[in-house]
Structures are given as structure tokens and as C-alpha cells.
Design a protein around this nucleic acid. Structure first.
Lengths: 231, 231
DNA sequence: AAATATAGATGATTTATATCATACGGGAAA
DNA sequence: TTTCCCGTATGATATAAATCATCTATATTT
């Protein structure tokens, strides 16, 4: 991890309006002064389960995974966060330690705002607190929705969904570098590594996708969307 | 549904301190005036997916399920809420309609507070807004944790977990009336009805539980807890 | 460069779970 | 009262997915 020194003001940030639009000059200044920018290399652990939650994190560049390790040592990926996401927003107000770990899947730039300052601003600015609450509601609605989708699908449908997620929500194109290993895809979808590999091969044989190592191209999005639905 | 007329002040409510402890007399009065108490019979639908979210709900007595119906008409239960739970708290600030339906599993008493009033109080009282944020964080942490647990378990472990949930978190005793049909247990755990029934029978044969219709008695909590863990 | 781990790939086999079929009892509706 | 639906129950069978095994290619460490 490297702390970035030449940081610019929040106001120049493309994500500024996502949350901080309601702040007045004084509050904005407080947040900006309590802010650090941190660079993580692919693979680096950003937060470890059990650490104290003392900052609000948001992702400016790159990609991270939130995950938990079970008593067999097996990881379970809870979610993938992308630029613009408020990585730990659902967790920061509970006054508990991190219930999961966070690691960089790509080279990543994270903004870190001291939690006490964020809490002060929330309690001082009613509009801002409503904004934070709205954001939290939206995040949890996304979780509920994705859980509902996944519970209706079997292995093939779940893998199709995650491919579409990367193409449409993360990279916005049909050809992309899969940022997860096959094992990690399995950890995210509760599937074994072998089954993940096998299913991707099957998709290739069926002309749904093209694979070349980590590079994946979606060839038939329509069919991918309908796997395990039309039945 | 029946609206209760002889409602008492919030201050006498055993759950008052769970959320409303921070309010001053004026705010408290606002909330209390914006409040209705509603009685639902077992089986009644309290909110239907798609309805406008215009109130904050909390459960005083009884039990409810949150669920969504898929395009095959099959229900998927997202969660079970018990007295003291803020049924729709995660959803109320998103400014979207209900993403799920809510129905009573037992005769149920629900407090309903006009959302605009709750939002006003949140924006006016910083301590209260932190309290609401904390509660939201806690709820989502519980969801993450239970999802993590479930993803490590197969059918037997998932059913064992839900039996323990009712015994320990809902009824606080080892003998209880299962408030769900076998089908609903399946809808909650993503298991077929037949498999749910079969697994319960197997638990009975193995001396883990005793079944008499809807009455279930846990005979060996330790073994129930360890199903699908010791492997 | 050699040695060692890790990722990806695929086949054979076992196990878990879903599906299909049938039956029975109780309560709701005709 | 009779009929019908629904919840519970169980067996037989089919299918999905996990497990075990083996192999190659590619990193990573020594």
C-alpha cells in the first residue's frame, strides 16, 4: 500500500456528487482534511476481518472483493465493489469491527475518510444524513435483488449472471479480462472450482462465450441471460 | 387488517428504547401522532411488492415473512421478522416501492409511522439519525453473517440452522410450533418441499428432534449445530 | 535454470438434491 | 355429506454437482 501525496480536492472527483453534494463549505473542508488516498497493488489486502472500522472507504479506481474465511480456510466472496462504490458503507455505523476482509483484485485507488469526521457531518447535516441513508437502502436493495436472482438459478445460470455482471456493470463491453480466478468465481457463487471451469468450457463449446485465458468475450448475451429462466 | 383504536403512548412500549430513545419531547410527540397500530390475522398480506413505501413499520407482536415471487409463481422468502424488528428499515430511505411482499405468519401487531415524519425527525436530530444508521448497519451485518453461514451448509445444515433459529431467536424454548409450512421452510432455504419433509423425518429418526405435526422439539441442539461443520 | 506452487483443464465416480409418482388425512367448499 | 385441495409423507428415479484423480501450462521461488 502506498499513500498518495499529491491529492486533489474532492470537488474535482467524478464521484463527488454521489454522496457529498449536500455538504456546505465548512463540512466539505472537514471531510477533505480527514481524507487520505491510498494505492493498493493487485492482490493486496486492504482490510482484514477483525480490524477496527475507523474510516469510510470509497473506491476511485480498480476493483476489490469483500470476503470471509470459514473454519476450513476456504474463502467466501460476499461482493465485488467497483469505482464509485462505498465499500464499507453498510458496516461503518454498527460500531463493530470488520466482519469481512477486503482485498484488491486490480490496482486500486481508495479514498479513506476518518469515520469520526463523517459521523460528525452526518449528525450535523440532516440532508446529508438522508443522503447516506438513501445510499444504504439502495445498497441493501441491490443485495436483496441479487440474492433473489441467484436463489432461482443453478450453476450455469449463476455463472452466466456473473459474466453479464462484469460485462455490463463493471467493464461496459463484451470483451474483458476476468479479474477473478476460476476459484474465486466459485467462492463468489458457492460452486467448486472444477465445476466453474467445466461450465465455462461448456459455454465456450455452446458458442455462448469465447475464452482465451483470462480474456472472455460474450457472444450471445440473450442466451446467457435466459439460462435457468425459460425452464 | 384492523386498525387498533385504543393505542397507548410509545413511551410505554417495551421496544421504545430500541430506536426512539434519542428523541426530545417535541419529536417524540410528532412520531406518536403519526403512528397507527394495525392488527393482522395469520396469513394476511401486510404489504405487496410494488406498493409505495410511505411508512416505517415495526413489529410489536407476532411474526412476519418478507418474500418475493418469481416468474414461475414460486415464492422465495427473504427473511423472517420477529417482535422488536424494524421490518422495512433497510428499504424506507431508497425512495423506491416495495421490492418484496410482507405477510403475517401469526396474528401480528404492527406499528406504522408515517415516513415523512420519520424522515423529518432523522434530518432534525443528529443523534437519532446516527441511531438509525447504526440499526441499519446491524441489520445488514446480520444478513451478511447468515448468508455466510448458509453458503457453507447443505440441506441438512440449513434446516438444522433454521430450527435452531426458531428455538433460540424467536421462541426461546426447545419445543415450539413451527410457524412455517414445510413448503415455506423450503422457500426460505432454497430447498424443495419434499427434501424439507424428508430431512425433518430423518432428523426425527436420528433422534435429533421430535415432530408432531407443527410441534417440534429439539432433542440434541449440539448435534444440530454441528451438522455440515465438522466435515 | 531448476524446483515448486498455482491456475486451468478434463475424465471417472460418488453423492446430494430435484423430480415424478403415489398415498393419506384434514379442512374448506360445493 | 361428498368432493376437492393442500399439507405431509415416502419411494423410485433422474439429474446436478461435488469429489477424486490426473495432466498441462504458467507463474513464482530458490
Amino acid at each position: 500500500m502506498k499513500i498518495k501525496n499529491d491529492i486533489l480536492s474532492c470537488k474535482t472527483c467524478v464521484y463527488h456528487q454521489l454522496l457529498f453534494g449536500e455538504l456546505n463549505d465548512f463540512e466539505y473542508k472537514l471531510v477533505n482534511e480527514a481524507r487520505t488516498e491510498m494505492l493498493f497493488k493487485r492482490g493486496e489486502v486492504i482490510k482484514e476481518e477483525g480490524e477496527t472500522v475507523n474510516s469510510f472507504l470509497y473506491l476511485r479506481r480498480g476493483l476489490v472483493k469483500l470476503y470471509k474465511t470459514d473454519h476450513h480456510g476456504k474463502d467466501h466472496i460476499l461482493s465485488i465493489n467497483k469505482p464509485g462504490d462505498f465499500v464499507n458503507l453498510l458496516a461503518i455505523f454498527s460500531e463493530k469491527n470488520y466482519q469481512y476482509s477486503i482485498a484488491a483484485l486490480e490496482d486500486t485507488l481508495v479514498c479513506d475518510v476518518k469515520l469520526e469526521v463523517l459521523k460528525y457531518v452526518v449528525s450535523a447535516n440532516g440532508d446529508f444524513s438522508l443522503r447516506v441513508l438513501k445510499k444504504m437502502s439502495q445498497i441493501s436493495e441491490e443485495i436483496i435483488e441479487s440474492r433473489f436472482e441467484q436463489s432461482q438459478k443453478q450453476v450455469k445460470g449463476r455463472i452466466a449472471q456473473i459474466l453479464l455482471f462484469f460485462a455490463e456493470n463493471i467493464y461496459h463491453k463484451e470483451v474483458f479480462q476476468l479479474p477473478l480466478t476460476r476459484r474465486e468465481v466459485g467462492e463468489l457463487l458457492s460452486i467448486t472450482t472444477e465445476n466453474t471451469i467445466r461450465t465455462l468450457s461448456e459455454f465456450r463449446k455452446d458458442g455462448l462465450i469465447d475464452i482465451e485465458g483470462k480474456t472472455i468475450q460474450l457472444l450471445d448475451k440473450e442466451r446467457l441471460e435466459n439460462i435457468n429462466i425459460t425452464g
